[in-house]
Amino acid sequence: MFDAWLQIFKRDLLIAFRRRSEIIHPLIFFVMVISLFPLAIGDDKVLLQKIAPAIIWVTALLATMLSLDNLFRSDFDDGSLEQMTLLKTPLSLLVTAKITAHWFITGLPLLLITPLLAVLLYVPTEMISMLLLTLLLGTPTLSLIGAVGIALTVGLRQGGVILSLLILPLYIPVLIFATLALQNSAQGFSAEAQLAMMLAILVLAITLSPFAIAAALKVSLN
């Protein structure tokens, strides 16, 4: 059972490394949108510093959502997704392999580039570790929830706009807790409670969303 998981995980990573644009485009989007804010607001150090966590988080949310389109698309188009449903291994398990691979391809680079962008937005150096921690706990949840939405819309021609309607409301708790954690730690308070909540949401998403994703994929394949 774990063998099939590993196979799919490796295969997805391999495909991504053969088509590097899939990794790079969401990153460029992330960097570009974040650099738009200082241009729109002006070089106001105090203001930028204050809203930097919000900017980074909202942009990370949008970048994750955009990158999700690749998650099932090609497998859906060439029929390999249908083959996966025929395997003995449950589909709910296999999709976690795909999502994990997808997070390594899109979530992890996002995390790696964030310190650089944080400097652009004048985030104090001691805040960067907290920013990374919230992203580390938050982006996997975003991928899991987003995968439900993409599984529902993968068969549709104009799935993109509908996807955002479906999953943005579901992203809000993650956004709230992440930015609260950052605000708290910026003011010198403990952010433990918020981080614990983010972890709890992540655990809930890991346990429940694979079943929803598998059911949604089966509906889409119908």
């Binding site: 549709l156 509908i162 929803a212 509906v219």
Partner: peptide, 26 residues
């Protein structure tokens, strides 16, 4: 979101099942 998803899917029985999953997730 529920209404958009239902309207986007051509086959209404499939659409209803997709919406049901979305409503449960919601």
């Amino acid at each position: 979101g529920v209404m958009a998803l239902y309207n986007a899917i051509e086959d209404k029985r499939t659409a209803a099942r997709a919406v049901a999953i979305l409503a449960l997730v919601g």
